[in-house]
């Protein structure tokens, strides 16, 4: 079974991933990450592993492994 993995230390809080997620599995986390931006959190139950967030993330945070 593949799994969505977030390397949030690289996240710059652009939330492009949130905008393109078709199932609203990704949401703003309300917490600041290492870079000082608001990161994201994923609800794995809702994630259909479509890869849209991987494609749009400019900082290589998201993978489906």
């Amino acid at each position: 079974m593949s799994k969505i993995v977030l390397s949030l230390e690289r996240c710059k809080g652009c939330h492009l991933c949130v905008s393109v997620c078709p199932t609203k599995a990704l949401t703003p986390s309300g917490e600041l990450g290492e870079k000082g931006y608001e990161t994201v959190r994923v609800d794995e139950e809702k994630c259909v592993q479509c890869g849209s967030c991987y494609r749009m993330c400019p900082d290589y945070v998201i993978e489906i492994l």
Binding site: S2, S7, R10, K12, G13, C14, L16, Y37, Q49, C50, G51, Y54, R55, M56, C57, P58, D59, Y60, I62, E63, I64, L65
Partner: peptide, 29 residues
């Protein structure tokens, strides 16, 4: 669907672009 960052991208490097900049996506392509 498996999606892993390609080998050519050094994820431990400093990524200098602003938040939400398209340059990072294009470099990955």
């Amino acid at each position: 669907m498996k999606c892993s960052v390609p080998n050519g991208v050094n994820t431990s490097a400093h990524i200098g672009w602003c938040p939400g900049c398209g340059h990072g996506i294009i470099a990955r392509l």
